[in-house]
Design a protein around this nucleic acid. Structure first.
Lengths: 150, 150
DNA sequence: TGGGATATCGTGGGAATTCATGGTCATCAA
DNA sequence: TTGATGACCATGAATTCCCACGATATCCCA
């Protein structure tokens, strides 16, 4: 489970450390799968299990008719076509490809945000701005299990 | 089940003891999950079971249409993104991250309040004033199973 | 029922480990 | 050679672990 948020440095080689708790969540396979989000200037990622689950969901939804084959191919192009498997070394660092850094406007640092089954990578200030907006959204949302009820 | 209230010291390293009855409620996994509340200056937390249940409830509510995907992501960012898994050592202590202490205005001590499936962490005096307000509120509320009738 | 022994719990401090990050060294392609 | 790529070492700071103490609560047996 990907939890918590942390901001790490991006060095001259484009390297950054995958947060240690995330590495734990990834298990033995020393790699993450990351792709540019189609919804905004940030990256999305997860482990091998997530990638497989996403693939299967696309198949299943074509099978049960809730996703048109054309739309499925579009999903695959933007997800599987853009995603990369980035393995990290013994110190836990990956290299963020230049295209990824451009997409998310990353320069010297990156913020990893855990979202349970997946995570996102943001330019630190952009994430702060977004979070402020989300805080308001959550305050006006119905409760979840008695927690966070307004 | 998290029951009762107790106030413990926060030392120079930011450490505090998770109340022993809470540790019993947490089971084998020697860790608590804690996050800053979006509706006040205090922390909320629970065990692994609570975290998973919250995560699932978000999914389910998106599936049944009672929660918009955008609102779901906001929930995830503010809950899963802000939460941290804090494991405690053999003496039962966790380290409260500085950001958490700031959010709840904690300095030398913290009050753990059990709420059944979850708990809250308050600055002791803030909790006292809040409790006083709640006492009045409860007195004007219909009884529950004959308990707490004025 | 009293009173001493035993266990539990919270707290302080120091030692050992982990973590992020800068740097170096091979490997391979252009 | 140069430039990019990937793996491994070094380091300092931060974190986590473990042992010791004292106070409180619990137990047990007279």
């Amino acid at each position: 489970m990907f939890l918590s948020t942390s901001t790490n440095t991006i060095d001259a080689k484009g390297r950054t450390s995958v947060p240690s708790p995330f590495r734990d969540a990834l298990g033995d396979d020393a790699a993450v799968f990351i792709w540019p989000s189609v919804r905004g200037d940030f990256l999305e990622g997860g482990g091998e299990a997530l990638m497989k689950a996403l693939q299967r969901e696309i198949f299943d939804r074509v099978a049960d008719g809730s996703l048109a084959p054309v739309a499925a191919e579009a999903q695959q192009v933007m997800l599987l076509g853009e995603a990369r498997r980035l393995s990290y070394d013994k110190t836990g660092r990956i290299v963020l490809p230049e295209a990824f850094r451009d997409h998310a406007n990353l320069s010297n640092s990156a913020t990893f945000v855990g979202l349970g089954n997946r995570f996102q990578v943001w330019e630190p200030e952009a994430h702060e701005t977004r979070k402020a907006a989300m805080r308001e959204s959550v305050r006006s949302t119905p409760l979840i299990m008695g927690v966070e009820r307004p």
